[in-house]
Design a protein around this nucleic acid. Sequence first.
DNA 1: GTAATAGTGTCTATAAGACAGTATCCG
DNA 2: CGGATACTGTCTTATAGACACTATTAC
Lengths: 260, 260
Amino acid sequence: MTPSRRPPGPGPDRPGESDFLAAYARRRNEFDLPAVTADAVLLTVRDGQLSVLLVQRAEHPYRGYWALPGGFVGPDEPADAAALRRLAEETGVAAVPEHLEQLRTYDAPGRDPRMRVFSIAYLGLLPGLSDPAPGAQAAAARFWPLDTLPLDAADTLAFDHAQIIADGVERARAKLEYTSLATAFVDEPFSVGDLRRVYEAVWGEKLHPANFRRKVLATPGFVVPTGDQAAVGRGAGAALYRRGTSTTLQPAILRRRPTR
Amino acid sequence: MTPSRRPPGPGPDRPGESDFLAAYARRRNEFDLPAVTADAVLLTVRDGQLSVLLVQRAEHPYRGYWALPGGFVGPDEPADAAALRRLAEETGVAAVPEHLEQLRTYDAPGRDPRMRVFSIAYLGLLPGLSDPAPGAQAAAARFWPLDTLPLDAADTLAFDHAQIIADGVERARAKLEYTSLATAFVDEPFSVGDLRRVYEAVWGEKLHPANFRRKVLATPGFVVPTGDQAAVGRGAGAALYRRGTSTTLQPAILRRRPTR
DNA sequence: GTAATAGTGTCTATAAGACAGTATCCG
DNA sequence: CGGATACTGTCTTATAGACACTATTAC
């Protein structure tokens, strides 16, 4: 199935949805207690493009819309465990991300039409994967290159998920500078070129290969040589590396700043 | 009253507390729904010491313990508004902090003995203030210099608030490097020396006055000269500045890194 | 051959750290 | 006067960015 970018209906208030909204509103009015969900922004680099894992919702509200995998947090369940559980249930991605951190919590009243919902968003990074298989609770699941996502038109993704994705991408972009996060996007072993292509995909800019190489190898604990050489592709065989032990980079690998 | 560092009782499970716990447990067992609170880590620099605003709890659980100001979020209330509301109610601090941002959400099951509580923590920065007046719902309220807080012994503050404070301080320390956050700690107008003393208090290290001055004035948009001179204290009258328009600093004001 | 990649070396500009030295004010 | 603060200037070192150049491989 080729997923459509636009959802099938005109908006979240479509025929058949009013019953759901009424039931949820009843629950809320009786108890006046909130619900808490956990959502995952799972990023990967595929074909040189920074991409995010989305699912197409099978239920109201926002049925047919693309959304982040996630769902309600169980009564005694840690929120990060809930995000990983829903990830596996909805997309079949059982691999634990190479990196998972809390992004922030989205709390605006009205962000969910059913009731007050607090969503704890997590940011996860994965090496390139095969295509995910949609689970029972989602109509479809796939990685979307960020360039093809209309992030500035919030009504094309469910809830406020466009904003959550934008925040997650900005967090990832910033952390590539001063942490070793980029290595979470590649499988071991990897070449300096592989790592540079991660930076180029996440930052959306070309980097100078010679200078990048010098900076990576001059940063202690970033990468560790395996001694092996890559099976050659185009050009000379590249030396291969594993992830180093440092989590923070000193000196940092800085982005180009806008000229003042 | 001189607040004691140690709470009066042996722990959160003291006589008189079981009734409260039972009532809350009932609420939770019936509906199995969580509660959401908003807590504020409010930092300021007083007498050259980085300090945090705490209240002494008047109710169970953790009665008598020092805790962050905060409380339950209203059904239609944004969480940041709840944090500011509770701040005013408990400490009398009505001033809107010069800077307020979401820190992170604390969700560990069992972090509150009553029921599952998700706490959205906020980080706020204030210029030096007069002593706060405790509100009706707190036994006492005051700024605590961080040096005097036993942050590594979690049981001396209520809930997991020692960890929340540690995270907030670390966030503030990191953001001084690449943002103009330090100016939120001083009243306008201020001198370069005032700003340097903020950095020294937050980072807990002495900075080289001449080099610091050169870096601050070379960073565009950080501070704007007023043209005035400070009423002299010890030494020459210092030039005065207001906050600039930049929020991110380029180049950054970097901390000393541990020698590798 | 060309094109693309890996890798080395070098030059320049910028910024950080260290430090010398002057001016001004308080006590 | 001594001690503290404000401010200027200079020297060294580390890093970033730009670029030239060689080597290797696919096509």
